[in-house]
C-alpha cells in the first residue's frame, strides 16, 4: 500500500538496519556453506582450494556422518509425538477450571529453562542407578531395574527423544491453545447436538479448524528435531550411537578442523530442511499462517 507522501526509499531506510546483519549472518552463511563445501579450507593460512566434490564423497564414506544423518532423521519421530502431546495438553487446560492457569504455567516451565541446565538433571534420572530405575522398581513394573538408559545404543537416542518431547511440549501446547480459541463455538455446539462424540468432534470440527496451527507447529518441531544438538551433547556426549547431524557439523569444524567437510554436512542439512518444509506445505496447505500475502 503506497502512501501519498511516503517516498520509496523511506521503506528501504526502515528495513536497512535489519537487512545488514540479516544478510551477513543469516543469508551469507547459506551461500558460504555451499561455496565452502566445495573447498579445502586451510585454517592457518585462511586459504581455500577447490577440491570438487571431495567433501561430499568423504561424507558418504564417513561412518559418523551416516549415523548422524540416520539419528537426525529418527529424531523426526518427536514431531508427531509433540503434536499429539501438545494438543492433548491444550485440550486438557483449555477449560477455564479453577487452577487451569497454574497448570498451564507448570506445563510451560521446561520450555524456559536452558537445555544445558535441565538435561543435566535428566542425565541423573536416566543413569543406571538413577531415578527412573528407582521408579520402575518401586512401581513393581520392573523390580530391581538397573538399565543404563543412556549407555545402550538401543535406548539412548529414544531417551534423548523423550527428553526433547518433555522439554518442548509446553511450547506447542501454547500455540495449540491459541489455535483452539479460533475454533468456532457454534460448530462445536452443532456437532454436539448431532450427537457427535468427543473423538468425532475432534476429527471433524477441531482438527480441520486447526490446520494452520498444525502446519506452523510441525514446521517448528521439524526444525527443532533436525537441529538437535545440545539435548544429545548433554545426555550422552554423542556416545551410544546418538551423534546427530549438527553434532557432526560442530565436531568436524571445531574438533576436526575441516571446515569444508562441516560445510558440506550443513548443506545436506539445509536441503533436508527445505525438502521437509516443502512436503509439509503441500500436505497441510499454505493458507493463513504467514498472515496476509505480500
Amino acid at each position: 500500500m503506497a502512501r501519498p507522501g511516503v517516498r520509496p526509499y523511506t521503506g528501504i531506510l526502515f528495513v536497512l538496519p535489519f537487512l545488514l546483519p540479516f544478510a551477513l549472518f543469516s543469508l551469507w552463511p547459506l551461500l558460504c556453506n555451499l561455496w565452502l563445501s566445495l573447498m579445502d579450507y586451510f585454517l592457518a593460512e585462511r586459504a581455500t582450494a577447490w577440491n570438487g566434490f571431495a567433501n561430499y564423497v568423504a561424507l558418504t564414506e564417513s561412518d559418523y556422518f551416516i549415523r548422524g544423518l540416520k539419528n537426525s532423521l529418527l529424531f523426526l519421530l518427536t514431531v508427531p509425538a509433540l503434536q499429539i502431546g501438545a494438543l492433548g495438553l491444550a485440550l486438557l487446560v483449555r477449560r477455564a477450571l479453577p487452577g487451569a492457569g497454574w497448570f498451564r504455567t507448570m506445563y510451560y516451565l521446561p520450555v524456559v529453562v536452558a537445555v544445558s541446565v535441565v538435561a543435566v538433571a535428566w542425565r541423573y534420572v536416566f543413569q543406571y542407578d538413577g531415578l527412573l530405575n528407582s521408579m520402575l522398581d518401586w512401581s513393581h513394573l520392573w523390580p530391581g531395574a538397573d538399565m543404563d538408559w543412556l549407555g545402550r545404543p538401543q535406548f539412548a537416542l529414544y531417551a534423548a527423544m523423550i527428553f526433547a518431547v518433555w522439554k518442548n511440549v509446553g511450547y506447542y501446547m501454547v500455540l495449540y491453545l491459541a489455535g483452539l480459541q479460533a475454533v468456532p463455538r457454534a460448530l462445536h455446539d452443532a456437532a454436539l447436538l448431532d450427537g457427535a462424540g468427543f473423538w468425532q468432534r475432534l476429527r471433524h470440527v477441531t482438527l480441520p479448524a486447526l490446520q494452520p496451527v498444525i502446519l506452523l507447529c510441525t514446521l517448528l518441531a521439524t526444525m527443532g528435531a533436525l537441529k538437535t544438538f545440545q539435548e544429545v551433547l548433554v545426555l550422552t556426549g554423542g556416545g551410544s550411537d546418538t551423534i546427530t547431524l549438527l553434532m557432526f557439523v560442530y565436531g568436524a569444524a571445531f574438533h576436526g578442523q575441516s571446515f569444508g567437510l562441516a560445510a558440506a554436512a550443513a548443506v545436506v542439512m539445509m536441503i533436508i530442511c527445505f525438502a521437509v518444509a516443502a512436503v509439509q506445505f503441500r500436505y497441510f496447505g499454505q493458507k493463513g499462517i504467514w498472515g496476509k500475502e505480500v
Binding site: L24, L27, C32, K227, F259, A263, A266, M269, A277
Partner: peptide, 23 residues
C-alpha cells in the same frame, strides 16, 4: 525480502555456525 525471510525461517540458524565463525 519477504521471500528471503520465509526461506530463512525454514532452516535453523545453527546451520550458519561455521560461516559465522569465519566471518
Amino acid at each position: 525480502l519477504f521471500g528471503l525471510l520465509l526461506a530463512t525461517l525454514m532452516v535453523p540458524m545453527e546451520i550458519g555456525v561455521v560461516p559465522n565463525f569465519l566471518t
